[in-house]
């Protein structure tokens, strides 16, 4: 029964943290890494591409009204019926769509994660009330909500953004709450309370970091969802308004000119489809890398 405790145990050879291992696994996924590269290329093109042209997407060029595609002319992908350069407009529209996409997903994600983590950790009646609220908000018809909010904010980008965030934080909240509930029962949370941590400290330092893998995966699916709903609302005419471009309203005006000139639809449509594909492949790769059942 006597064991020599003066002999301290040496540590096993160095290995990485779970997060490092997961990212290593993600990097070995070729399709996902290709998507990251392509997405980065599109983002760079949207934000820096327009500076390569001497005009902006709102300048009309009356010598080239509805010019066809000609790669060697000043307007390589042609112009629309007002003489505005289509390529520059699509790139500028990309700025709007991508910004709303990532920012919207970020804001909705942060709100949802904190709300869900607090509800899941608190449990009991607070949790019940918080989740009933989420369920009530789930029941709200989306388009009516957007119209109400644009009346409230007087239309414009802010109303659109608010509407998108308002509807999209619900799902991450529900996902994280389930995760937080199981984490709150783990013994390390009890140890944290015995160590004198406050409830809020436990949520921020223990609960949220342990939900992060779920959140990353869901967040990467949230970005295309936000871009799609922006496009959808702009397509309906509620979202981004002319002359400001977004992929949504470019596609909308492209559809109306579809019979005469398919190019107005194809360029923004292809870019949007590419971005959505990339994001979905990335989300897929992240899910494979983070799924504990795969380990």
């Amino acid at each position: 029964m006597s064991v020599d405790l003066t002999l301290t145990e040496a540590a096993p050879p160095r290995s990485a943290s779970t997060l490092q291992l997961q990212f290593r696994r993600f990097r070995s996924n070729r399709l996902a890494m290709l998507s990251v590269g392509l997405l980065a290329l599109i983002v760079l093109a949207c934000f820096f591409g327009p500076y390569a042209f001497p005009f902006t997407g709102e300048d009309a060029d009356f010598d080239f009204i509805s010019a066809p595609m000609d790669l060697w002319s000043p307007h390589p992908f042609g112009t629309d019926e007002y003489g505005r350069d289509l390529l520059v407009r699509v790139l500028e529209g990309g700025q709007v769509s991508l910004t709303i996409g990532f920012l919207g997903a970020l804001v909705a994600g942060v709100i949802g994660v904190l709300y869900g983590a607090v509800a899941g950790y608190a449990g009991g009646r607070a949790d019940g009330l918080m989740m009933r609220l989420v369920e009530i908000l789930y029941g709200f018809p989306y388009v009516i909500l957007v119209i109400l909010l644009s009346l409230l904010f007087g239309g414009g980008n802010l109303a659109l953004f608010a509407a998108i965030v308002f509807t999209l934080w619900l799902t991450p909240a529900v996902i994280v709450r389930a995760q937080a509930q199981s984490l709150a029962r783990r013994e390390f949370v009890e140890a944290a309370r015995a160590g004198g941590m406050t409830g809020w400290q436990i949520v921020v330092e223990h609960i949220v970091p342990n939900c992060i893998s779920v959140v990353i995966v869901y967040g990467s699916l949230l970005v295309p969802e936000v871009i799609l709903s922006e496009s959808f609302l702009s397509f309906l005419g509620i979202g981004i308004k002319e002359p400001q471009a977004s992929w949504g309203n470019l596609i909308a005006s492209g559809t109306s000119a579809m019979d005469s000139d398919l190019r107005l639809l194809l360029l923004p449509g292809t870019l949007l489809a590419l971005v959505l594909l990339c994001l979905n492949f990335i989300a897929d790769g992240l899910r494979d890398a983070f799924d504990p059942n795969d380990r």
Binding site: F188, E190, A191, A194, G195, H206
Partner: peptide, 15 residues
Amino acid sequence: MQIIFQDPVAALDPR
């Protein structure tokens, strides 16, 4: 006043 737990691995935050 401190406490140690039955499941030693669950008592440590994996992150």
